[in-house]
């Protein structure tokens, strides 16, 4: 992806991908929701979500970031930073 992405767009995309992997309605996943509190959440679902986010944006998140994500906003910030660095 070479186009620019606003933070809101990234949050929407990340929310949709996480909601799909977690099997939960997107409306349930607010940007500041602690992902560990989501019903059925586990580390595999987080990793699978991260993999799909990386594929969607063609980016590579560092593992120390990945295992530190608490919220969708954390993920979106990391994605936005990488996309901004890529230009």
């Amino acid at each position: 992806m070479s186009q620019t992405h606003t933070k809101d767009e990234i949050i929407r995309t990340v929310t949709d991908l996480v909601a799909t992997e977690f099997g939960r309605p997107a409306a349930e996943l607010t940007p500041d929701r602690d992902l560990t509190s989501v019903e059925g959440a586990d580390s595999v679902k987080v990793l699978r979500s991260v993999a799909r986010i990386e594929r969607t944006y063609d980016i590579e998140l560092e593992d120390d970031q990945v295992f530190g994500f608490k919220t969708i906003d954390d993920v979106a910030d990391a994605v936005a930073t990488l996309l901004a660095e890529r230009g």
Binding site: R48, R55, D58
Partner: peptide, 8 residues
């Protein structure tokens, strides 16, 4: 049908 490995 669950993805277990992703590679680029």
């Amino acid at each position: 049908g669950q993805a277990v490995v992703f590679v680029t």
